[in-house]
Design a protein around this nucleic acid. Structure first.
Lengths: 136, 136
DNA sequence: CCGAATCCCGTGAGATACTG
DNA sequence: CAGTATCTCACGGGATTCGG
């Protein structure tokens, strides 16, 4: 839509432009949201990975959610699915190049989380502490 | 937990490590998830912004969700809240430095989205098309 | 102007059981 | 092995109303 990139870190934006700014971001967040998308994508990043490998490797995921998330990622073109009609059957999932380009931004996000997780945790505790005092 | 950073784009990861990889990322995603967090953060990035400004500026947000999201962001230390006990009351929200450091990763995410949104959309359509043929 | 309280609904997601 | 099919429930989030 816009022919130039608006820098989120830049100045001079009005509040009304915030939603315009955020819009494409939230598209991504929708792709990646869901409890398991990121884990699956990362697991499928380095080559073909089988269904059962994912099920065992990703702790806590249910069969159902694994299937559903795999289907969604495949639909969005982030994962390719290759079925070998052998017996027993064998299915391999691989992250596409589009998905792999997502890893750098995700990495930046993870770095931010690691840098600030302590700060955030203590901010949370402090907030709850103050709230408890004020509230009671 | 780990004393060195594991590069998501690197090789040699087993599937079992995927969840370890993804873990801090999903912390962030939880912060930022919720329909409105990103829009609010961006709107509050460049200086104090008032409650009603946000309500009018962010299209489609309800009073309730604005309040709830603001509280959560404040609790996590991503937003500061300053109340002026005037009449009528006046409240200003500002993104903290921690939050502002999040904008670069978000920007990278948005760029990814803009680069690939067409590809993803057509992948989706193609998938649905094939599914419709195979299914009926 | 800036919220809090309440009601309501759709959907994400777990548990479980069945199939080619 | 790699899925599907149901059932169920919690929770995010919208609409509306009330209060300081």
């Amino acid at each position: 839509m816009s022919q130039r990139n608006i820098d989120v870190t830049g100045d001079g934006l009005t509040v009304d432009q915030a939603v315009i700014e955020a819009c494409p971001i939230m598209e991504v967040l929708d792709q990646v949201s869901g409890k398991w998308s990121v884990s699956i994508l990362i697991a499928a990043a380095h080559g073909p990975v089988r269904f059962t490998e994912l099920e065992r490797g990703i702790d806590g995921i249910s069969r159902r959610m694994l299937t559903l998330t795999l289907r969604r990622l495949e639909r969005d073109g982030l994962l390719t699915r290759k079925v070998y009609p052998t017996v027993p059957p064998k299915t391999e999932y691989t992250a596409t190049s589009v998905a792999r380009e997502l890893f750098a931004p995700l990495s930046a996000l993870r770095d931010w989380a690691e840098r600030h997780q302590m700060t955030i945790a203590s901010a949370r505790h402090e907030y709850d502490h103050r709230a408890a005092e004020t509230g009671s």
